[in-house]
Amino acid sequence: MRLEAVTPKNYEAALELSVRPDQDDLVAPVVKSLAEAYIFPEYAWPRLIYDGDRLVGFLMAFLDIPWGSEPEADLRSGLWRLNIAADAQGKGYGRFAVEAVCAEIRARGGTQAYVTWEPRAGGPEEFYLKLGFRPTGEESGGQTVGVLDL
């Protein structure tokens, strides 16, 4: 497994990635993430997940984004989006993606990784809790905020 930057050669394949239909309300499509990466290039870290030559997923991290409206807002980093292709789920690609984001945060001097998830049955809460994230008690856009100490 490896990560690759999104390039003119691979972006069209990235746009075709789709999660299972029952997950469509849990994560935005790749096209929205790429638009946000364009608008927020100082924070966004989009990457494609490959297994050999096969594209199996997309992730986008946020790096050192101000959290809160205070002038001394905390800077946070974490997983912004995770899209694993419907036929590639349950094979360790999501875990690999989260670990890769955490490694990037550590390499930049970070000590915590954040993520949000939709608090509903069939959502990714169990996945993130198994990886060691714990709810902070905060919400963001109606989603649960989780943190992992690195």
Rank of each mutant, 00 (worst) to 15 (best):
L79S: 12
W80R: 07
A86R: 13
T111P: 04
R108A: 14
T111E: 11
Q112K: 13
K91Y: 14
D51Q: 06
L82F: 14
N83D: 13
L82E: 08
G122C: 09
R47E: 00
E72I: 03
G92W: 12
R47F: 00
W67A: 13
V98S: 09
L129H: 11
I49Q: 03
L79F: 15
E104N: 06
A113T: 02
D53A: 15
D53F: 08
R120E: 14
E118L: 08
A121R: 06
R76S: 01
I84G: 01
A61L: 01
G110Y: 10
T111N: 09
G52V: 00
A85H: 02
D64I: 04
P46I: 04
R47V: 00
L79K: 11
T116Q: 05
I65E: 15
L55V: 03
L59D: 08
S77Y: 12
R47L: 00
A121V: 02
V101M: 06
D74N: 10
Y50G: 04
V101E: 04
G52W: 05
F62S: 04
R47M: 01
F127P: 00
W45L: 01
V115C: 15
W67L: 14
A61D: 02
E70C: 08
R54E: 03
A121S: 09
R76T: 00
G57V: 03
S69R: 05
F127E: 06
S77K: 11
Q112W: 03
E104T: 02
A73G: 14
R120Q: 12
S69W: 13
W80Y: 15
I49W: 04
R108G: 08
Y50N: 09
Y128R: 13
L79V: 15
L48C: 05
Y93E: 09
A73V: 13
I65V: 15
D53Y: 11
